[in-house]
């Protein structure tokens, strides 16, 4: 094969790889900015919920697809009829891992009565996400509708 045709092949290969790179670069940058805006890539779902007296405890399954250890917390809010704030003591979610995190909130009387009468709860959670490697704190927002609560 002549060097000229090798050069031609390399040029076309480069153009193909370059075009793909441009697309992946745009996608990666958008994802990175979105991570910083909300949740840092964490995906959370409510596995179980218990109401014990005035304390609602949620077992969250939190998945961290990235390669950076993240800390859920230290502060979290639950919004039902009223807003309750709590402190999350150990919310370490290691990289490439799914971790169960328990979060407890002391609820207002109106919210307790709603859960007692229906057995279900709809609420939104706003949990801080601490990214120690970047010295950053962002927010993980979660909307939960009709979650069964064990009373």
């Amino acid at each position: 094969m002549k060097v000229r045709s090798l050069k031609q092949v390399l040029h076309w290969l480069f153009l193909a790889v370059g075009a793909i790179s441009a697309v992946v670069l745009a996608f990666s940058v958008i994802t990175y900015v979105e991570y910083a805006r909300d949740g840092y890539g964490l995906e959370a779902s409510v596995e179980d919920a218990w109401l014990n007296g005035d304390t609602l405890t949620l077992k969250l399954l939190v998945t961290n697809p990235g390669g950076m250890d993240l800390i859920l917390g230290p502060l979290g809010n639950i919004t039902m009829n009223s807003v309750s704030t709590t402190y999350i003591p150990d919310g370490l979610v290691q990289s490439d891992d799914t971790t169960a995190v328990l979060v407890s909130f002391v609820l207002e009387q109106a919210d307790i009565e709603t859960i007692d009468s229906t057995g279900i709860a709809s609420f939104s959670l706003d949990l801080q996400v601490t990214v120690s490697e970047r010295d950053a704190v962002t927010n993980l927002h979660l909307d939960v509708i009709d979650q069964e609560v064990i009373t």
Partner: peptide, 9 residues
């Protein structure tokens, strides 16, 4: 300014 970063970034 989508979130606040410290010196770590």
């Amino acid at each position: 300014h989508v979130t606040e970063f410290g010196f770590g970034l």
